[in-house]
Amino acid sequence: MTTKAEFKQDMPPPGGYKNIPYKRVPAKSFFGGWAIIGGYLGMTAGASYLYYLNCKAVKIRQLEMHSASLAIYPMLLAERDRAYLNQLRKNRDEETKLMANVEGWKTGTWYGEPIYHTVPKNTLIEPNYQEFYVHSSYNDFKYRAHLALLS
């Protein structure tokens, strides 16, 4: 046995439907444009001041290191000069000994032909790296030439 279903028309709720929320809901803004620009400028100014202080401190630190190096430079240079001249003389003696049996060889020249003709005889022409190490082993030369890469 069936009962006839009672027909009921769907109707809007009393008072009507709510409005469709199509309006924009902006996020809550804490700062206006001017405040943001002002804040940016203020923070940049503050950071610049800190940066300036830091730069000054770094500069002073570097200058102090440089100053200390300059203070001991004459002493190191004096010691280096003596060692250098000593080695130059040793090199010259070594060349004289090595080439003693070669006919026509004159130390410091190519069979009597000097490097420069116009400088006074007593001028010290500083040898280059390879020349300076020419009578030593290649390992010594290599070590000294690449010393900066080792540290």
Binding site: L85, L88, R89, N91, R92, E95, T96, K106, T107, G108, T109, P114, I115, K121, N122, T123, L124, I125, P127, E131, F132, V134
Partner: peptide, 11 residues
């Protein structure tokens, strides 16, 4: 090396 015996080097 370009240092001849005419170049004075200290002993």
């Amino acid at each position: 090396m370009g240092i001849t015996h005419e170049v004075e080097l200290p002993t």
